[in-house]
């Protein structure tokens, strides 16, 4: 009421200011409300609690001989686990980093030199490379070969030849014991 007393006579300007204030505050409150209401819509599409509960995998490695590999599933993706031979480990260690497309030393890619754990998805366009089963071609570098567009990976899962831009990704994992692997 005090405001209207000030602007009562020909207070067109004052009236406009009051109206502007109301408009701006209404729109602001509405915008904040809309933003807050948007969050549940966004979050509903995120992984739900039951999906997150299945987001880790535990594996028993005791049956894998030296030179063998298995494919496990973690978060719907193939995980390559290869128990490398001494010569494969040496081959991986002896590569000069300068020769690599995505330079990374073998020591940075494993926790125990014998065990190589990778997400088995080609970094080119998402195919699953071959070379994990006995009898499959392992590519020119003794690791894996992606039949989709011809990418070759070495015994450390690094890209050596072909269109893929990066090495195989390493999932987060830890050894719970000598023969138990926890991924996730």
């Amino acid at each position: 009421m005090a405001d209207s007393a000030v602007t009562s006579e020909d207070g067109q300007d004052g009236e406009e200011t009051r109206r502007d204030f109301l408009l701006i505050s209404t729109v602001s409150v509405g915008a904040v409300g809309a933003a807050l209401a948007a969050w549940p819509f966004i979050d509903l599409m995120n992984p739900s609690k039951d999906v997150l509960a299945l987001a880790s995998t535990e594996l028993d490695l005791s049956g894998i001989e030296v030179g063998q590999a298995i494919t496990a599933i973690w978060r719907g993706k193939p995980i390559f686990i290869r128990r490398r031979t001494a010569s494969e480990v040496d081959a991986a260690k002896n590569v000069k980093l300068a020769e690599l497309k995505d330079p990374q030393s073998d020591a940075d890619r494993v926790q125990k030199p014998e065990w190589l754990v990778l997400i088995g998805i080609c970094t080119h366009l998402g195919c699953i490379p071959v070379g994990n089963k006995s009898g499959q071609t392992k590519g020119e570098f003794g690791g894996w070969f992606c039949p989709c567009h011809g990418s070759h990976y070495d015994t450390s899962g690094r890209i050596r030849k072909g269109p893929a831009p990066r090495n195989f990704e390493i999932p987060p994992y830890k050894f719970l014991s000598d023969t138990t692997l926890f991924i996730g």
Binding site: P40, L44, S48, K49, D50, V51
Partner: peptide, 13 residues
């Protein structure tokens, strides 16, 4: 029931 328990904000929707 999964919407009610596991989906983010599912109970609210």
């Amino acid at each position: 029931e999964r919407i009610m328990r596991d989906v983010n904000y599912g109970w609210m929707f």
